[in-house]
């Protein structure tokens, strides 16, 4: 079942230096429950595409449906959770208070709020940190809290824009593993922007390779890797082959530009 569908999607920004073609003729279908990674150099439109899905940018051409709705309708229907590059937790709220924020806006009852905060904290392995303030947590823990915040209202789609980009590799590896477990448990549809090839290959069922100027899709790779993925799968032959194909796609895109 297709949950996100883009047809001939175009987005042109008008800037002082003339129009910038951020997205050109993007066609993509994402099925329910898929883990899709978007990879490419900066300026390839991967974040822009995610923001279009979230209804934070308006495409200038083509159609885009999210769960059968326009992105703006989907945004108002709270159809997705969004995780940004920075954790962006409010410093004046505790971890629990931060996770409560979307629930407050969406008008959940007090008991329901408590239950969901507790549940999502357990889901991201932060049980017991509810009363802590963001500055008392490490960067990796803060990012996990921001994932919990996006999960708390249980939307079917999770949009993640380089959520681990600012973390060191050791922490990133662990969070990648946790994210896969979380995905397996929640069966959400994941759209994940990254510029790390191993991360994209390790996490995804589908890898979308993008290239810049104009931002477009240059390759879509369906991963043959099994759903169960220990970290050392990254030394396997299949993994290395997919990574190689991603690299080739990135290179071809750069040369064409």
């Amino acid at each position: 079942m297709t949950i996100i569908s883009a047809k001939d999607l175009n987005l042109t920004f008008q800037t002082n230096d003339g129009p910038v073609h951020a997205l050109k003729d993007v066609n993509l279908d994402v099925s329910k429950g898929e883990f899709v990674s978007f990879i490419g150099p900066s300026g390839c439109g991967k974040t822009t595409f995610l923001r279009c899905v979230a209804g934070l940018e308006t495409p200038t051409g083509g159609t885009l449906t999210v769960d059968g709705m326009t992105p703006d309708e989907a945004r108002r229907a709270r159809a997705y959770g969004y995780v940004f590059q920075a954790a962006g937790l409010y410093p004046w709220r505790t971890i629990g208070g931060n996770i409560r924020l979307p629930l407050e806006i969406m008008g959940y009852s007090a008991a329901e709020k408590d239950r969901r905060v507790k549940e999502t904290l357990e889901l991201v392995d932060l049980a017991g940190f509810e009363q802590k303030y963001p500055w008392q947590l490490s960067g990796g823990m803060q990012q996990r809290a921001s994932i919990a915040r996006a999960l708390s209202f249980d939307a079917d789609i999770l949009l993640m824009d380089e959520p681990f980009g600012a973390l060191d590799e050791i922490v990133r590896d662990r969070l990648n593993e946790e994210l896969l477990r979380l995905w397996a448990r929640t069966e959400k549809t994941m759209l994940f922007v990254t510029h790390s090839i191993p991360e994209a290959v390790y996490l995804s069922t589908k890898i979308v390779v993008m290239s810049p100027r104009p931002g477009r899709i240059s390759d879509v790779i369906d991963s043959p890797l099994p759903k169960e993925r220990p970290l050392d799968i990254r030394d396997s032959r299949e993994f290395i082959e997919i990574a190689h194909r991603v690299r080739e796609g990135l290179r071809a895109g750069m040369e064409a530009a």
Partner: peptide, 23 residues
């Protein structure tokens, strides 16, 4: 980013004011 975050929750202007801008 913090304003976008509230937009993804479909927060209204008064909610943005009380929950983000004022604190």
């Amino acid at each position: 980013m913090q304003l976008d975050l509230l937009a993804t929750y479909g927060a209204s202007k008064p909610e943005t004011f009380w929950k983000l801008r004022l604190p």
